[in-house]
């Protein structure tokens, strides 16, 4: 068990446990927010670990930081009581449990049908940390999901770093953790969505102010 796997296991356990704590244990909103903070931080760490460095950092800043702080401020603003009423009706509860089942179902279906079973996550610093390349390549070739990776099936040796051989952006990706490639993708090929996104954020700001601001009366 390498250090990375160890780190992944620790962070995953932290995320799952703090999520469970938030959902089940936390009695007050402040406790829940604290658990959420822990969970989101762990998730950011995992994101960095599996190769989404920039995503992980941004996630940490925006959600682990700003959003959690915002939530706490709202708790301070409006008070945290509530949710202490008598239990809701049986039928409603049945419905909610049905929804829970559906959520679990979605998760199971996605996990079950995802073609990546048993395939190591590539793109972490170097192939050596994940394991012997030959073994990985053999696993890739044997696995039915390899049919979906034509490139991987054709170049077993390149399966770990297919991008390096094929695309300059991908080469940058492996070299510098993907920041440059990410920047190019965001500001070149996805420039229009990005601009639309900024408009969305602006309208969200305006909308929040309009909704939460006190009326003159």
């Amino acid at each position: 068990m390498s250090a990375e796997v160890l780190l992944f296991d620790v962070l995953a356990a932290l995320a799952v446990f703090s999520a469970a704590a938030m959902v089940i244990v936390a009695r007050t909103a402040v406790a829940a927010a604290t658990a959420l903070l822990a969970c989101l931080t762990a998730v950011s760490g995992i994101l960095v670990l599996i190769g989404g460095e920039l995503v992980g950092v941004v996630h940490l800043i925006v959600h682990g930081g700003a959003v959690t702080v915002l939530l706490l401020m709202i708790v301070l603003l409006v008070g945290a009581e509530g949710g202490r009423r008598p239990a809701s009706r049986v039928r409603d509860t049945a419905f909610k449990l049905l929804g829970c089942g559906a959520a679990v179902g979605i998760a199971l279906v996605v996990v079950h049908t995802a073609p990546g079973t048993g395939v190591p996550v590539s793109g972490v610093e170097s192939g050596a940390t994940i394991g012997p390349g030959a073994a990985s390549a053999a696993a890739t070739a044997l696995h039915p999901a390899a049919a979906l990776h034509p490139a991987a099936a054709l170049h077993p040796a390149a399966a770990l770093h297919p991008a390096a051989a094929l695309h300059p952006a991908a080469a940058l990706d492996t070299i510098s953790g993907g920041h440059r490639a990410m920047g190019l993708a965001l500001f070149r090929s996805h420039l229009l969505p990005l601009q639309v996104l900024s408009l969305l954020l602006l309208s969200a700001v305006v909308g929040s102010v309009a909704l939460a601001g006190r009326r003159a009366d």
Partner: peptide, 28 residues
Amino acid sequence: EPGTIQLYLALMLVGGLAMVIWLLRAGG
């Protein structure tokens, strides 16, 4: 239309499950 937000969410998840199954089956 009970007005209960959580019931809407439950229904939404059921619909999402159906959609995911259908999409994955069609894709498969």
